[in-house]
Design a protein around this nucleic acid. Sequence first.
DNA 1: GTGGTCTAGACCACT
DNA 2: GTGGTCTAGACCACC
Lengths: 131, 131, 131, 131
Amino acid sequence: MPWKIQLVTNSPAPIFGQIVQQVRQAVAQGLLHAGDRLPTVRELADELVVNPNTIAKAYTELERAGVIAARRGAGTFIADGQCALTAEERERILTRKIEECLTEAVHLGLTQKHVLRLFTETAGRFRWPMK
Amino acid sequence: MPWKIQLVTNSPAPIFGQIVQQVRQAVAQGLLHAGDRLPTVRELADELVVNPNTIAKAYTELERAGVIAARRGAGTFIADGQCALTAEERERILTRKIEECLTEAVHLGLTQKHVLRLFTETAGRFRWPMK
Amino acid sequence: MPWKIQLVTNSPAPIFGQIVQQVRQAVAQGLLHAGDRLPTVRELADELVVNPNTIAKAYTELERAGVIAARRGAGTFIADGQCALTAEERERILTRKIEECLTEAVHLGLTQKHVLRLFTETAGRFRWPMK
Amino acid sequence: MPWKIQLVTNSPAPIFGQIVQQVRQAVAQGLLHAGDRLPTVRELADELVVNPNTIAKAYTELERAGVIAARRGAGTFIADGQCALTAEERERILTRKIEECLTEAVHLGLTQKHVLRLFTETAGRFRWPMK
DNA sequence: GTGGTCTAGACCACT
DNA sequence: GTGGTCTAGACCACC
């Protein structure tokens, strides 16, 4: 992998969830591309010093989300998943996420201008669909 | 309260967490202001039909976060919480939230333009500090 | 539960998959309704004589599919899930299933008339959306 | 072969299983007839770019099911397989398949009318026994 | 050697 | 007492 997964063991976020999020983000940022091979369950388990079942759970979750595809006997690969949800559902999901984000921002005492700048800058580090 | 808390019992999010998030969001949107009185634990427990312990846990969490303050014998009130973190720490926290948001957006197949528009629109419904 | 889950231990289908399919079918046939409570993980594990983790895996899968909703500390309930896939995706998925079904039918040497009758009869035992 | 086998490598379905299903479906749709010659294991392995062992496993499975027959030194041919099961057993097997199909349909939120139309249309693309 | 399933048993978060 | 997470270790299907 072109980068390292960072686990925070003293976190309320479960280990498998941290792995899921970091792989999803790497894909969204274009650090991982469709067809790239992920480390095997056992390799990653050794590297992160967690139980192989925990890695397997993360990979299962990612597969269910269409982010990766596991092939028995061959390994695990980044998929070129297309989201099949309706347009309304997608907006609904994202709006909720954005509201969480903004709630946090206001409570942190940041200004609207500052937040918009941070959002735009960060968006530039992601890999957007062309369509 | 000027608005109703909406609980989704069919949700992986814990009940107390939903309450915390909705109070925080109401404050961030200016629906609740510093000094406003919240319902008592028992009142809210009756209204939402949940265990009083669950409400108490939500209030404890909100107090720990500096969003509300309980005054013995008087009730619970919205605090005018000032965030005591350093500027760097605040940016770090928000950036992580924004990254989660953008990761979701890319996986939903939305365009950068669409997401920026949605973010800006939603930000307009929040109450920002003047500073 | 108004009916019993039947496990075939000598089957290529995994145990958790058999549970998933049978719960899905019970919901589709109207034997289980939104809001109904399922047995606890431990209860069902005892009843079917399998490991609680196996039941938990089945429940997790069903939750991900939106068929049930688990509430920590409260139990597991049938959800009133709405499918948010696009119309094309839904037709695509079902057509593939139908093709599998028909392939099987032809290889069994059944006549078209016979199969259509069986299909229509069986459909009558399901609970269809009104819309 | 009058048509091409399409492998989906990003799929939980095993490669050999996809081959088995597609040959069975081609026979059921009349694209392959009794006596037609199939490619050799090596030819098909080269064409699909998979391990010859995988093709061999698919052929073994198809032969076991009576769909094809290998003749030493001559090649592999589509058999005119007669299903040796009792009428009851055949109905039982098909009913289970139909139930899976209908369970999926209901969960996709499709109407009974829609599903019946799709089933009838698809059935028209299959080659049924005259008997 | 790869991922998938299952068991056994521990601990935690939530109601 | 409920479901959720994690560990440990076994066996199987697939390539």
